[in-house]
């Protein structure tokens, strides 16, 4: 294009542009801040309630719970509200206030994307007694059987994670083929959702192998904190 230079006539007036952008920007900013402040307490309450419900579902015998955070020194301190840095564990207590177990969040790669789970670990039975999928994008109708298949969910009603003599998990959780579960630490897979069900078993295995020994070593942190 060989249009004659029109710069002089095309130079826009600067003031109306700034006025429009800044004015609209200010209005929008005020609106967003207003909505944010009004909805924030509701949203945070929703989040806390959702987590709370999940915790009491995986630790059905707990009556109260407290969240702890791992400090840099390696021991656990009551988690500060909002500060979600590092590993968080939720301790569950019965009516008498005695520690009965933990709810631990874990995540790992599934078939499509990361799967986030919450599992409950019970001291009296030294076993995982509940598992809840917090977030997953597994294939609807197939991979999401990890949440809906009653036989698969039943795996986590009592899944042995006892510690051996060396202070490590004696039998790490392992996935087996559907219907071939022989030992209390094995997870029956789902036919048609092999990868997703194995992923859940792997997530639990990694998380329990890492954290259950540590939690046992640091038990005093949770008792004292009450």
């Amino acid at each position: 294009m060989s249009a004659p230079p029109q710069a002089a006539s095309q130079t826009p007036a600067m003031w109306p542009m700034y006025r429009a952008m800044v004015g609209v920007g200010l209005l929008c900013g005020v609106l967003i801040v207003g909505v944010f402040l009004t909805t924030r307490p509701v949203i945070e309450r929703n989040r806390a309630e959702a987590l709370e419900r999940a915790i009491f579902r995986v630790l059905p015998e707990a009556r109260t719970r407290r969240s702890f955070q791992r400090s840099a020194a390696g021991n656990f301190e009551p988690a500060a509200a909002g500060g979600n840095a590092g590993f968080v564990v939720h301790a569950g207590y019965d009516e008498a206030g005695a520690l009965i177990g933990f709810a631990v969040e874990a995540q790992g790669m599934g078939y499509q994307d990361l799967i986030h789970v919450l599992y409950g670990y019970d001291f009296a039975r030294s076993a995982v007694i509940g598992m809840e999928v917090l977030e997953s994008r597994e294939t609807p109708g197939l991979g999401d059987k990890i949440e809906t298949d009653p036989a698969f969910v039943a795996n986590f009603e009592l899944l042995d994670v006892a510690l051996g003599a060396g202070g490590e998990v004696a039998h790490p959780i392992e996935a087996v083929k559907p219907g071939e579960k022989e030992h209390p630490w094995q997870v029956d897979g789902i036919s048609g959702a092999t990868i997703s069900s194995q992923a859940i078993a792997r997530i639990l295995r990694d998380s329990t192998s890492q954290w259950v020994p540590i939690l046992y070593r640091q038990l005093d942190d949770f008792r004292e904190a009450r």
Binding site: A13, P16, A20, I43
Partner: peptide, 26 residues
């Protein structure tokens, strides 16, 4: 002014989207 109209429109639209986002979360 028409030179900044797209930017302004996006600003307005983004604001309402943020409002909706918070509202749905609530």
């Amino acid at each position: 002014p028409k030179q900044v109209r797209i930017a302004t429109y996006i600003l307005v639209i983004a604001t309402f989207v943020t409002v909706v986002d918070y509202a749905i979360q609530a």
